[in-house]
């Protein structure tokens, strides 16, 4: 919300369901009490599924409401359950299954050979985590006797990930990466995040 205000945006209010909340109807009904039709939310997993289903059943898309959110809201673990109910939602994240680069193509097809699902962002995070460790260990010849050397090597790691170029911010050890603006669409029977825009080389502001 701070970032939104800094860049000239405004908010009209907020609705805050507790985590792990089962019934979203009271909160989604409350959204209709707001003067705006643009709704940003931060949900993941079960909460995201409950929110999106309730959002549709209470008729918000038909009433002209638009759904925005952090990318976890419409990751593949959620989309495989809600399918086209999420169409039109716009979210931002550092990866999407539709991303067009060689690493992502081989990652997605290798994942699908192993499992019958499309990979989600959590699979990418685990994969990149192991990749980063692997790069670091290669650099120090797998000699882990000095912990400082290991962390230094890890800090300097950079590689091509399914999400694009990946490196660490030396100050915070957060990733420096591209952030994609994604829109949910159903194409060829699969509901996925399509890439509509990209913000290059974002340093995570978290400390």
């Amino acid at each position: 919300m701070t970032g939104l205000k800094k860049n000239g945006g405004t908010t009209t209010g907020n609705v805050a369901p507790p985590l792990g909340n089962a019934d979203f109807a009271p909160f989604v009904t409350q959204i209709k009490n707001q003067p705006t039709k643009n709704v940003y939310s931060f949900f993941s997993g079960a909460d995201a599924i409950g929110f999106i289903k309730t959002w549709n059943s209470l008729g918000l898309p038909a009433a002209g409401y638009k759904m925005y959110g952090a990318g976890f809201l419409t990751e593949q673990d959620v989309l495989k359950e809600v399918k086209d109910l999420a169409n039109g939602a716009i979210t931002s994240l550092f990866w999407a299954v539709e991303l067009d680069n060689a690493e992502n193509k081989s990652f997605v097809s290798a994942y699908q050979r192993q499992y019958t699902l499309l990979p989600d962002v959590f699979a990418v995070q685990a994969y990149d985590g192991m990749h980063a460790l692997d790069e670091a260990l290669k650099k120090i010849g797998a000699d882990t006797s000095d912990p400082d050397k290991v962390s230094k090597a890890l800090e300097d790691v950079s590689f091509k990930s399914p999400r694009g170029d990946f490196m660490f911010d030396k100050n915070t050890h957060n990733p420096v990466q591209d952030i994609y603006i994604r829109e949910v669409k159903t194409q060829n029977g699969q509901t996925v995040n399509t890439i509509s825009d990209k913000v290059a080389k974002v340093t995570d502001p978290g400390k």
Binding site: A16, D23, A25, P26
Partner: peptide
Amino acid sequence: TFGKVLFQEFA
């Protein structure tokens, strides 16, 4: 339901 709506912080 009304508790969650009227007293969000104490839902």
